[in-house]
Amino acid sequence: MFEVILLQFINGLDKGGAYALIALGLTLVFGTLGVVNFAHGALFMLGAFCAVTFQKLITLETVTVDPSQLSPWGTPVEVREPLVQAWLGDFGAVLVNYSVPFSLLLAIPVMLVIGIAMERGLIKYFYKRPHAEQILVTFGLAIVLQEIIKASFGANPIPQPVPTDLRGAADIGVMLGLNPGIITYPIWRLVYFLFSGVVIGAVFAFLRFTTFGMVVRAGMADRETVGLLGINIDRRFTIMFGLAAVVAGMAGVMYTPLLPPNYHLGMDFLVLSFVVVVVGGMGSLPGAVAAGFLLGILQSFASMTQVKALVPGIDQIIIYLVAVIILLVRPRGLLGRRGVMEA
């Protein structure tokens, strides 16, 4: 029984990691700028497509027809050679193999630019407008972004390869002293969980231990006073928006091997992430992270056959159900501050 519970527990970790990362970004934006960003899921999707683009770029290849060699059915053999491999040799091969993690290098600057452009170009005009209008304009923006992706990459999911060394499953049970073969876990999902942990840790450390982070936290608590102290808080908040976009983008990049990205990936995750934010408490960063993992794990438990036999369909609705209960019983969410968005 213990093994079963443990297995479901870790099964929920990677999804929980993705929820936590997206919810973290949403909360950062809400906490700093006070904007409800329905386009945040689209940022996750854009990140995923950074990985797709990078992979496409890196696997550009030359095709030469070699008439001296014949394939078994008598046509000349096409020799394909990836350009990267031709230029960079072994390193190129590694690059192709590890295209997904390496696309983080592309995704970080791209997402930063997109995030800042989005904030400066559109969202800054909506600080003072009601939440309903913020939802509407970011919803429209999300449609635009996903349609652009659809127009450039097509509507079908594009699978991304897992690096060869990280394929297969790890036997976690053995590490914990259990019999082998009971708890095996795909390595990439483990990687994703660790990755999300690192990113979350980095964001918290950034806010906690740097002067910039301190100013941002002060601004979240009392924007006006920080402004009166002669600090340009708006610029810092813009950068935080960019940072939130980067977090969402990185979450998207690393998620591509688990779920082939298509253009509506973002919306699928957005709905869930909003639920996560609400459960954690609007504006509470630890709440967003905790709720992300909690809901990921709950979902994994709800997908167990025994549970499904008990309550049919529970795996489909568990997250929403939890959100409804939390919203009604504890309006400010699990870790929400008293008085923040309790109405």
């Binding site: 409800v36 939440h131 909003f274 639920v275 369909g313 609705i317 929403y320 959100a323 919203l327 109405a343």
Partner: peptide
Amino acid sequence: KRSGIYFSILTLAFAQMSYNLAYSVL
């Protein structure tokens, strides 16, 4: 029971629940 953005999210959650259930158990 709630208003503002919470109301939007609650209705969204209920609609998604109905949609998911319509595809699976129902």
